[in-house]
């Protein structure tokens, strides 16, 4: 269906029937994503292979793949990746609990929001990087510091999405539920939550992305494991291939997390106008 819709948007293609088969194969979004990524790495490879850029300053994708393979074989990649993932998971979970709760409360009770939102809006512009010194002071070097920084990065997007969603609830829908006799719990689970998911879920996806950036930032400075630490340590050992290998891993994992969440969003919010393009 998606392919049909896309084909409809490109009337030019219909004039060249012999491309139809190729076009159909490339019409799916995942396929296009694969093509885009492959092209990116191919150009990168060409640039380094033709010595347009010094191989020490920018290792080629093949060299990075080799480095990744080595890291995977000796197991260090998995240790670092596991550590980072575990940190982002814990921090993100805390951010979700706090952000959702605060967003719900502030969205529902205007007076509470009048008190709380100025505080949140004043804390929000402080970048997680600026929190690092005081984080180390409070939590030392270790997992707790990383959890806290991920939390800081992720909590604001979660809060804002939840607050906006609750604020934007359709008054008539709430009234409809009330006059049909809905008890508070049914109102919450059957109306309030599903009605706000189209706004909350994209917020969670953005928050996870920010959290993933924060965990790497935290590990660059305040940890002894993790992808950020791998990059930092490799830099000191002049293993530039490993530095970029770490960066590539971060990028691909972040991409995968976002893609998975987007998939879930599409399924959950299939009814919502925003998902029907």
């Amino acid at each position: 269906m998606e392919a049909e819709a896309d084909a409809g948007r490109l009337p030019v293609e219909t004039m060249r029937p012999r491309f139809t088969m190729i076009q159909n194969a490339f019409a799916g979004r995942p396929m296009r994503a694969a093509v885009g990524l492959t092209a990116f790495f191919a150009i990168w490879q060409a640039v380094t292979q033709l010595n347009l850029v010094d191989g020490f300053l920018l290792p080629s994708p093949v060299a990075i793949a080799e480095a990744l393979w080595q890291l995977a074989l000796d197991g260090s990649l998995w240790v670092h990746l596991g550590a980072s993932l575990q940190r982002v998971a814990v921090g993100f979970l805390f951010a979700c609990v706090v952000g959702l709760a605060l967003g719900l409360i502030c969205g529902w009770w205007r007076t509470v929001s009048d008190y709380v939102r100025p505080v949140i809006e004043a804390l929000r512009p402080i970048p997680p990087l600026a929190w690092i010194p005081i984080t180390i002071l409070w939590f030392g070097l270790g997992d707790a510091a990383s959890y806290f920084l991920v939390f800081l990065g992720a909590v604001f997007p979660v809060f804002i999405a939840t607050y906006t969603a609750i604020r934007g609830l359709d008054r008539n829908q709430m009234n409809a539920a009330l006059c049909l006799g809905a008890k508070p719990w049914q109102l919450f689970t059957d109306v309030l939550i599903p009605a706000s998911l189209p706004i909350i879920l994209p917020g969670l996806r953005i928050a996870l992305g920010v959290g993933w950036m924060c965990v790497v930032t935290a590990e660059l400075i305040a940890a002894q494991t993790g992808l950020g630490y791998l990059i930092q340590q490799s830099r000191m050992l002049f293993q530039i291939n490993n530095v970029v290998a770490g960066m590539v891993t971060i990028g691909l994992i972040g991409f995968a997390m976002s893609a998975i969440l987007e998939r879930i969003e599409r399924r959950v919010n299939a009814w919502a106008p925003s998902e029907r393009s």
């Binding site: 359709d170 008539n172 829908q173 009234n175 409809a176 539920a177 009330l178 006059c179 049909l180 006799g181 809905a182 008890k183 049914q186 059957d190 109306v191 599903p194 009605a195 998911l197 009814w271 919502a272």
Partner: peptide, 30 residues
């Protein structure tokens, strides 16, 4: 509000995430 007085709204106010069946069942579930 009370289920002895139900309302039909100009903008329908149907629950978009529920099927017709689920919408109609809402008050019965309550």
């Amino acid at each position: 509000p009370d289920a002895s007085r139900t309302v039909v709204f100009q903008d329908y106010a149907l629950f978009g995430w529920m099927t017709v069946q689920q919408n109609v069942e809402f008050g019965l579930k309550a």
